[in-house]
């Protein structure tokens, strides 16, 4: 548990790998609109993520938090706007992006072991048609060890607890060795041990110079776990360092319900015209 990201692997991601874009923001979202069947879920979202920070996305249910990161990952079509990762269209930067989906997004009764799932984070490196070698297996076990799950490597995934399954997903993302991570509610419904393990991993990722964007539902822990926060309710209502942005006023605007939202929209429209 000493070094979460192997120093040798960290070297792979020196700035020389991205010479012309090293100064760019990990994630720039411009006037992003996403609609499900004509009903907009995200409206004109603007965001510029700071480099090497832990960023929380908070907002009420149905605010479009998961939609935002899925749109950034290219998993759902966007109606308008653009998403850039390190200065390039997100689709071309997928090798730099790690992803921890919601636990409920897959069938955990699938016939694979924890190790098999974590190794999936290495498939991009392994390439087409090549089998998972012993070297990759070792790397996968290492990632499992980083989340305290090395002993469960051969366990079938349905025989893991919810928190352990979440840690397997986290280990898979660590194996990806990405520069920018998206995590969709990793803390949802996990036990105390898993929560501690995830927080520890987040700190280590930051220390290794990665940027992590986390959809988060627990307002109480935002100041403790994160540096930056984005308040989202269909639109980005506020974003910035936690101590500046995470105010009662902003939270009320985000969670205050429809009325506050309409107020906001009216002001925005008045300012726009």
């Amino acid at each position: 548990m000493q070094s979460f990201i192997h120093s040798k692997r960290a070297e792979h991601l020196s700035l020389a790998d991205f010479p012309e874009h090293s100064a760019d923001s990990p994630l720039s979202v411009h006037s992003l609109t996403v609609a499900y069947d004509r009903k907009p879920v995200l409206w004109d979202a603007e965001y510029e993520a700071p480099d090497r920070q832990l960023i929380a996305i908070v907002g009420p249910n149905g605010a479009g938090k998961s939609t935002l990161i899925k749109a950034c990952l290219g998993l759902i079509p966007i109606a308008s706007g653009s998403v850039e990762v390190y200065g390039q269209p997100a689709r071309r930067q997928r090798r730099l992006i790690g992803y921890v989906p919601q636990r409920g997004s897959v069938d955990w009764d699938f016939p694979v072991s924890a190790l098999d799932v974590v190794a999936m984070g290495l498939y991009g490196k392994i390439g087409w048609c090549r089998p998972v070698s012993r070297k990759h297996r070792r790397a996968a076990v290492e990632s499992l060890d980083q989340v305290g799950m090395a002993h469960f490597a051969d366990r079938q995934i349905s025989q893991l607890s919810g928190g352990q399954q979440q840690r397997v997903f986290l280990a898979r993302a660590l194996a990806q060795d990405a520069r920018l991570y998206f995590m969709d509610e990793p803390f949802a419904g996990v036990d105390a041990a898993t929560e501690r393990a995830i927080v520890e991993v987040l700190r280590q990722l930051k220390q290794d110079g990665r940027t992590v964007i986390v959809v988060h539902h627990d307002l109480q822990t935002v100041p403790e776990y994160f540096d930056h926060v984005m308040l989202l309710n269909m639109r980005v209502l506020a974003a910035g360092p936690v101590d500046e942005v995470f105010t009662n006023e902003n939270l009320r605007r985000t969670y205050g319900g429809r009325l506050a939202l309409l107020d906001e929209a009216a002001t925005a429209l008045a300012q726009g015209s």
Partner: peptide, 22 residues
């Protein structure tokens, strides 16, 4: 046999596969 790993990935977690540009 050749695409075993790819088939497994897409059957288990197609969204994740997509983010890895498979």
């Amino acid at each position: 046999a050749g695409l075993f790993k790819e088939f497994r990935l897409v059957c288990f977690d197609p969204d994740f596969a997509e983010t890895q540009s498979w």
